[in-house]
Design a protein around this nucleic acid. Structure first.
Ligand code: MN
Ligand code: MN
Ligand code: MN
Ligand code: MN
Lengths: 218, 218
DNA sequence: TAATAAATTTAGACTAATCTAAAAATAGAA
DNA sequence: TTCTATTTTTAGATTAGTCTAAATTTATTA
């Protein structure tokens, strides 16, 4: 059985490996978790001795099959709890992450599966992220960055990259939520900002940085 | 903000003070929590320096108003989560305690109240224990120990003292659950065991020890 | 390729929570 | 009331997780 701290390291390693498609470096983990590189280095040895990671000094870490299974299950729990908080307790999508960070560490052989059943097996969380099933399989969704749409192309907002509260509240204010229909009216070369038609009604302009954090389906 | 460990100490102190109607002794806490008396002694000083307890060396501890508020809220969270697990996720009453022990430590200003609303403000948990409201007020229930019923008296089972899984499973096997109608047919002086009529149907005999753990309402 | 910069690991220290063993204080019995 | 048993506290160690500073290794650049 792992501590919450160890579990968080596994999640960070999973996230980084997935993003960069290579072994997670000490510094990358350190910055992801806001801890010192020294602490990370220390923890990597412990996780390896517990069979959770493959680790060679100075070369970074990857998850073992067991480590991967635990990380995936944490993501499953995190996202199912987020669905619960939004669907059943009526929290907004910007409020749930911190609670889910705690709830994902609840140890119980059965709880997550009962929750899954209670929620009727949702495939995506409130931020559009896929929820792995009990075997760790994700539903793959063909989604592209909003920046990849060309002028006059349309798409549906299906996901966000960031899930910080400030970013999500900004989206709310702009009238953007999952399911919103978007049409690219104009792309400004100068700073990469984009003028959009939202749900065939309002026009808004958003920065390149915001665009990069939005996923759409054509 | 307190650690889970500190919170557990407050709960133990609350429980003991309530049961014995006096300051909780180091040994009582030690045995309640299965830790050494030395650890307890150490923790009591820390909790006092944080303003959670009134503590005088060798005299035991009581909770301050703040300590009491936190302990009560922990009990509120624990019991509401138990209701959730039984009512919504269909766990049985003997399965939920350990999960609730973890869930009660989730920190969120709002979660417990949303949960309370979602569950439609239950007044009692699956073991018949009262759930304090957001202000810390308990619904008092006039309940008596089954041992206090005399021969030929009847009552409804409304609560259990113990909530260990083994005890609850035993009750299930005997056909006893909250709401069950009981009539005392005979009391055996020799060992304090009692013959009962259950729901005006079956007859069972239970030991004195079991009796002491059952609460009924006449 | 050699020097320098960056990344990583090691060394040593700190805190929370725990323990055992020893010392001190309180309570109970003679 | 004095001795003894019990309870409680203190002393000293240990482990997980963290830190800063120093040492080491790897990568980059001249
Ligand atoms: Mn999240
Ligand atoms: Mn999410
Ligand atoms: Mn319980
Ligand atoms: Mn209960």
């Amino acid at each position: 059985m792992l501590s919450s701290t160890e579990e968080n390291y596994l999640k960070a390693i999973y996230k980084i490996s997935e993003r960069d498609n290579k072994a997670a470096s000490t510094n990358a983990i350190s910055s992801e978790m806001s801890t010192s590189a020294a602490s990370v280095s220390d923890m990597l040895q412990r996780l390896s001795s517990k069979g959770m990671t493959h680790y060679e000094k100075y070369k970074g870490v990857t998850l073992t099959e067991q480590g991967n299974r635990i990380a995936t299950n944490l993501i499953r729990k995190h996202r199912l709890w987020e669905v619960f908080l939004v669907e059943k307790l009526n929290f907004t999508w910007d409020e749930v992450h911190d609670m889910a960070e705690q709830l994902e560490h609840i140890q119980s052989p059965d709880l997550v599966n009962r929750l899954d059943q209670f929620l009727e097996y949702p495939k995506f969380d409130p931020h559009g992220d896929p929820i792995p099933d009990a075997d760790g399989n994700f539903t793959h969704r063909r989604q592209i960055e909003l920046t990849n749409l060309t002028t006059k192309e349309s798409g549906t907002l299906v996901g966000v990259q960031e899930d910080s509260s400030t970013f999500l509240k900004y989206l709310d204010q702009m009238g953007l939520s999952l399911g919103t229909e978007l049409k690219v009216l104009e792309k400004f070369e100068f700073d990469g900002s984009v003028k959009l038609l939202v749900n065939n009604k309002e026009q808004i302009t958003i920065s390149n940085k915001v665009c990069k954090n939005l996923f759409v389906k054509k």
